[in-house]
């Protein structure tokens, strides 16, 4: 029982981690909270459902489709809503917040309009496949989710630390102006960041569809809020923090549902961040930058 919950928690947590990574990448580079990230995730989940469930495509093709669609959405998001606000005089930090909220409202209602309000079942051919280890039942789906998440996180870490593009991204995150003086094509880096973050959201969407066997237009909101909570927990813009924060939340939620009061499940994320913000506002892994009184 305990072990099973542990597996459930880790599965959920690794999905949360991927969603949070999307938030954290965009925040790290652009200093913007992308309020549409949850809805991009939701679109990814729908593409997964439609291609595998309705069109009968194989799962891997469903993933590719979801990645392509959400990456393209990310591109549109960057060029139509974020770029026009950049470097413009009189733009407060409110503007990108509202603008991406606009996108999230658009995507949620568009999906609602196209596919209706209800839950759509998500049938994967192996949804019921499971293996028994002693008394513990583990579903194949859970293993797939876990493996994909780990690969994705490792890939991202390696890409960020080893490749030229990844280094450019980190330099831009550090300081946009300095990076551009040093010859980094910051415009391209920003596009790339948003596109990659969105594609990760799309992958997470398909994974959630698999884990819970259903999708709905509102699923983006719930996960988006949790993603926000996680990046505060782990420190804004902090990649490692997003991963650990995601796992912590996944485990906390699973154990609360199993051993406590499931009604408060959706509040844990925020109770945790409210506590964290009061104790250590820069997050678990964040560091404090002092630059006052100049």
């Amino acid at each position: 029982m305990l072990l099973e919950q542990l597996v459930n928690g880790i599965t959920l947590g690794s999905i949360y981690a991927i969603v949070a990574l999307g938030f954290t990448l965009v925040f790290g580079v652009l200093g913007i909270i992308n309020m549409a990230h949850g809805e991009i995730f939701m679109v990814g989940a729908y593409v997964g459902v439609m291609t595998t469930g309705v069109l009968g495509w194989p799962l891997w093709l469903g993933f590719i489709a979801a990645i392509l669609v959400t990456a393209f959405l990310g591109y549109l998001l960057e060029s139509l809503t974020l770029r026009p606000l950049r470097g413009k005089k009189g733009v407060s930090h409110l503007a990108p917040l509202i603008s991406t909220i606009g996108v999230s409202i658009f995507l949620e209602n568009m999906t609602h309009h196209l596919f209706g309000a209800g839950n759509k079942p998500f049938r994967t051919p192996f949804a019921q496949l499971s293996i028994e280890i002693g008394s513990v039942t583990i579903y194949v789906v859970q293993i797939i989710i876990f493996v994909i998440s780990i690969l994705l996180m490792m890939g991202l870490s390696i890409w960020l630390s080893k490749t030229k593009a990844g280094k450019a991204l980190r330099a831009t995150a550090e300081n946009l102006e300095t990076a551009s003086i040093l010859g980094v094509d910051t415009k391209r880096t920003i596009i790339m960041t948003v596109v990659i973050a969105s594609a990760m959201g799309g992958i997470a969407g398909v994974l959630v569809g698999m884990a819970f066997n259903s999708v709905s237009p509102q699923m983006g909101l719930a996960i988006g809020l949790k993603g926000l909570a996680i990046i505060i927990l782990g420190g804004m813009g902090n990649v490692k923090g997003a991963m650990v924060g995601g796992l912590i939340l996944g485990l906390a939620e699973t154990f609360l549902v199993a051993y406590g009061d499931s009604g408060y499940r959706d509040a844990i994320a925020f109770i945790m961040i409210i506590i964290i913000l009061l104790l250590k506002p820069q997050g678990i892994f964040g560091s404090k930058a002092a630059q006052e009184g100049r």
Binding site: L85, S99, I101, G102, V103, L107, N109, H113
Partner: peptide, 21 residues
């Protein structure tokens, strides 16, 4: 009414691009 929230979302994006204040 079916489209009003879709329009609402687009409106917000346009407004922020044109008049962020």
């Amino acid at each position: 009414s079916e489209y009003r929230y879709i329009i609402y979302g687009v409106l917000l994006v346009i407004l922020m691009a044109v008049r962020p204040q």
